[in-house]
Computed example of a mutant assay.
Amino acid sequence: MADVARVAGVSHQTVSRVLNEHPSVRPETRERVLAAIDELGYRRNSAARALVTSRSATLGVVTTGSALFGPTSTLIAVEEAARDRGYFVSVATLRTYDTAAMHAAMEHFMAQGVDGIVVIAPHADVAAAVESFRAPVPVVVVAALDDASPDHGDGSPSATVSLAVDQRSGARQATELLLDLGHPDVVHVAGPQGWFDARERAAGWREALQARGLEPARPRLCSWSAADGYAAGRDLAEAVAAGEGPTAVLAGNDQLALGILRALWERGVRVPDDVSVVGFDDVEGAAYFVPPLTTVRQPFAELGSRAVAMVVASLAGEPVAAQRIMPELVVRSSTAPPR
């Protein structure tokens, strides 16, 4: 920084203000400092900065190591948002969801001196393990938690706060679309119920049916895979061929919907002429399924931005409350009124 100040003909403090985007620096002075930085190839020394500020400018991110669209998209969004705010990201991947694995990951971050932690916790066991750790830094849990307690249950404050896309609302919107089209009922092919998202989507589907005076049947429980969707779709296709099947299906995610579409096509069941199908996620390529898939889009970029903003606000001493982000229903050609 001293070299930059000398070349630019300014004080060390002015260089610091430029680097920290302080508004009191005149535009011509800022340009001169930036030119000197470019000429000298100056880069901040993060270790030295951490010693001065007692901040590492690093956020820890815990992920389950899943290749599924939702967790992966959330991880990418958090990393991009952190980088935009000048933070490095350290990632810890969990292969199991037990408390010991979570605590080991959190201790790893404590040893690194991270400023805060974002936990991508789609599974119920992950969220419980996070809360039991009692981290001394702000923690944002990205999960559709059933509730958000402001303390640990014993009166001691919690540094953990939740953030999620409103999965229940998304599933409710999708189910209401099908009901509004005139379908007398909607079958739900659900994801694994140990996942917050799957539980919340099933709850939204159930609420939409009950609001119309309909009694939901038990959902078909699956994994998140297209293979499970295909198996469920074969059963649905046989029922439709026998004149006993549904006219509308809400799939727990787009991969399940993809398997369902394939099974229906093989049996000669037309979508949406005979059966309407809705997915969830709006994965890359959903608009190119045959037919293009009606689905619920999750705003992952906003999710990542808010997660990082919540950590930063907490570090600044601001009160941070649980937040929910509304998804968007994207209507395409896989839905239509029943025949």
Rank of each mutant, 00 (worst) to 15 (best):
residue 209 L to R: 02
residue 22 H to F: 02
residue 322 A to F: 00
residue 2 A to Y: 02
residue 213 G to Y: 11
residue 42 Y to E: 12
residue 289 F to G: 08
residue 37 I to V: 11
residue 20 N to V: 01
residue 320 V to D: 14
residue 213 G to P: 12
residue 241 A to H: 06
residue 66 S to N: 09
residue 244 E to P: 13
residue 125 D to Q: 14
residue 188 H to F: 00
residue 141 V to E: 13
residue 78 V to E: 13
residue 153 G to L: 03
residue 160 T to E: 13
residue 308 V to C: 03
residue 228 D to S: 10
residue 93 T to V: 13
residue 334 S to Y: 02
residue 289 F to R: 11
residue 197 D to E: 14
residue 283 V to K: 10
residue 216 P to M: 00
residue 193 Q to C: 01
residue 128 A to E: 14
residue 334 S to P: 09
residue 278 V to R: 04
residue 336 A to W: 05
residue 66 S to G: 00
residue 325 I to S: 08
residue 3 D to Y: 00
residue 68 L to D: 13
residue 80 E to G: 00
residue 22 H to R: 09
residue 84 D to A: 07
residue 211 A to F: 06
residue 43 R to M: 04
residue 316 A to H: 13
residue 316 A to D: 15
residue 216 P to R: 00
residue 274 D to V: 01
residue 247 T to P: 15
residue 295 T to C: 10
residue 113 G to C: 02
residue 217 A to D: 15
residue 297 R to G: 00
residue 211 A to P: 12
residue 293 L to G: 12
residue 281 D to F: 03
residue 99 T to D: 15
residue 202 A to M: 07
residue 94 L to I: 06
residue 213 G to L: 08
residue 247 T to L: 05
residue 312 V to Y: 11
residue 244 E to R: 15
residue 227 A to W: 08
residue 21 E to A: 04
residue 242 A to D: 15
residue 143 A to R: 02
residue 198 A to E: 06
residue 201 R to V: 03
residue 5 A to N: 08
residue 197 D to G: 15
residue 209 L to H: 06
residue 306 R to V: 06
residue 287 A to P: 00
residue 183 H to V: 01
residue 109 F to M: 06
residue 292 P to K: 08
residue 53 T to S: 15
residue 276 S to L: 01
residue 185 D to E: 13
residue 11 S to R: 05
residue 283 V to Y: 09
residue 233 G to P: 14
residue 97 Y to F: 10
residue 255 Q to A: 10
residue 5 A to T: 09
residue 65 G to T: 09
residue 335 T to D: 15
residue 205 W to E: 14
residue 137 V to F: 08
residue 10 V to N: 03
residue 102 M to C: 06
residue 71 P to H: 13
residue 335 T to L: 05
residue 172 R to K: 04
residue 158 S to C: 05
residue 44 R to Q: 11
residue 235 D to K: 03
residue 96 T to E: 14
residue 44 R to V: 11
residue 87 Y to T: 04
residue 123 H to Y: 09
residue 234 R to S: 15
residue 296 V to C: 10
residue 223 S to I: 08
residue 321 A to F: 05
residue 327 P to K: 03
residue 247 T to R: 07
residue 116 G to V: 02
residue 246 P to L: 00
residue 246 P to C: 01
residue 30 R to G: 01
residue 182 G to Q: 08
residue 181 L to S: 07
residue 331 V to E: 14
residue 160 T to N: 11
residue 162 S to N: 12
residue 47 A to E: 11
residue 209 L to N: 09
residue 87 Y to S: 01
residue 106 M to H: 07
residue 140 V to R: 05
residue 219 P to C: 03
residue 182 G to T: 03
residue 260 I to Y: 04
